[in-house]
C-alpha cells in the first residue's frame, strides 16, 4: 500500500534526514524525561499538607543557573552541527541543467523531461538508483512538492525556480502531495513517483514520446471529433492532434496513468466516465468546467481517451 510516512525512507537523501530525526528524537526524549521527571518529583515530594508553614524561601542560585544555561548551549551546538551535516547529505548542490522540470498548477503537477522531451502529468517516472535533478516551478500560486519517502519537501514559487534531488533505491511506486495550501483543491493535488529499472524507464520514455494514435472509426473516432469540436483543446494537449494547449494536463498518454484528477480517484474507465459527466461532482472547484455532455458523448470521449495508452 502506498504511504506518505517519513519513517520509512527509501533513498539516501530521505535516510539522512531520518537518521537525524532518530538522533534528535533520542536527545529530545532524554531532555523530556529529565525535566518532566524533575517536575513530577516536585509534585510528589513537596505537597502542601494542612497546617504546614511556608517553606524555606530560597530565591535562586547563580551557579545552578549558569550550569543549566551552559548545558543547553552545548546541546544546541551539537544539534546545529548535525543539522549542517544532514543538510549537505540530503540536499546536495544542484547541477546546471535539471533532469526533470516539475511545475505546480492549481491543482495538478506537470512534469517535463528536458533531455528527452517527454511531458506528462501527476505521474513522475524515474530510474531506480539514479539521482535525478529536479527543478521546481510554479504556474500560479505557491505549492510544495513532497514525496516523504524519497526526498525533502520544497516549495514551488512563481519566478523563483528551486532545485532538489529525487531518487529511489528500489523500483516502486511512491505517493507525493502538495503540502503548501494552494486554494480550493489543495487536498487533491497528489502525484505518483514511479521508480523503475533503467530498462523499464527507457522503454517508458520511448513510449511517452510517441504521438497519440488517431482512431480511424467507431466510438473513439467520434470521441476525438468531440474533443476537437468542444473547447477541450483550449486547455489540453494531445501530441499528434491539433491540441497543443498547456493549461491543463497533457493527455497524450492519459490512459497509461494510474490516477485521475491529481489523485482524487483511480484512473478506471468507470471513474473516467463519472469525471467526464461532471468533474465538479468528483473534485469540486477543479478548473475543468462541467460540459453537460450527454451520456453518449461521455461514452465516446471515454472510449477515445482509453486509446491514449
Amino acid at each position: 500500500m502506498k504511504s506518505l510516512t517519513v519513517l520509512d525512507p527509501q533513498s539516501p537523501e530521505a535516510r539522512a534526514i531520518y537518521h537525524l530525526a532518530i538522533v534528535s528524537g533520542i536527545i529530545f526524549g532524554l531532555i523530556f524525561i529529565i525535566v518532566a521527571g524533575m517536575i513530577v518529583f516536585a509534585l510528589m515530594r513537596y505537597r502542601w499538607r494542612e497546617g504546614a508553614a511556608d517553606p524555606n524561601q530560597l530565591a535562586g542560585s547563580k551557579t545552578v543557573e549558569i550550569v543549566w544555561t551552559l548545558i543547553p548551549c552545548l546541546i544546541v551546538v551539537a544539534l546545529f552541527l548535525l543539522t549542517w551535516q544532514t543538510m549537505g547529505a540530503s540536499d546536495p548542490p544542484a547541477p546546471a541543467t535539471p533532469d526533470i522540470v516539475i511545475t505546480g498548477h492549481q491543482w495538478w503537477w506537470e512534469a517535463r523531461y528536458p533531455k528527452s522531451g517527454v511531458v506528462t502529468a501527476n505521474e513522475i517516472h524515474i530510474p531506480a538508483g539514479t539521482p535525478m535533478a529536479v527543478q521546481l516551478e510554479s504556474a500560479d500560486v505557491l505549492h510544495e512538492f513532497w514525496v516523504a519517502q524519497l526526498t525533502r519537501k520544497m516549495a514551488t514559487v512563481p519566478d523563483h525556480p528551486n532545485h532538489i534531488w529525487i531518487q529511489s533505491d528500489q523500483p516502486g511506486t511512491y505517493l507525493g502531495v502538495c503540502s503548501e495550501f494552494c486554494g480550493t483543491q489543495h487536498a487533491w493535488m497528489h502525484f505518483l513517483v514511479v521508480a523503475e529499472t533503467p530498462e523499464q524507464f527507457a522503454a517508458w520514455e520511448k513510449a511517452q514520446l510517441a504521438p497519440a494514435k488517431i482512431p480511424a472509426s467507431g466510438s473513439a473516432a467520434q470521441g476525438l471529433a468531440l474533443f476537437q469540436e468542444h473547447s477541450c483543446m483550449n486547455c489540453h494537449a494531445i501530441n499528434g492532434t491539433a491540441a497543443a494547449a498547456r493549461i491543463g494536463p497533457d493527455l497524450t498518454h492519459f490512459a497509461s496513468r494510474k490516477i485521475l484528477g491529481a489523485g482524487v480517484v483511480e484512473n478506471t474507465p468507470a471513474n473516467l466516465r463519472r469525471w467526464l459527466t461532471d468533474p465538479q461532482q468528483i473534485k469540486p472547484g477543479v478548473k475543468m468546467p462541467d460540459y453537460k455532455f450527454s451520456e453518449a458523448q461521455v461514452s465516446q470521449l471515454a472510449d477515445y481517451f482509453e486509446t491514449l495508452q
Binding site: 517553606p55 524555606n56 524561601q57 530565591a59 547563580k62
Partner: peptide, 10 residues
C-alpha cells in the same frame, strides 16, 4: 543583593 537563602526561623 545576591540571592541567598533566608533560613527558616521556627
Amino acid at each position: 543583593p545576591a540571592a541567598r537563602p533566608v533560613t527558616q526561623q521556627t
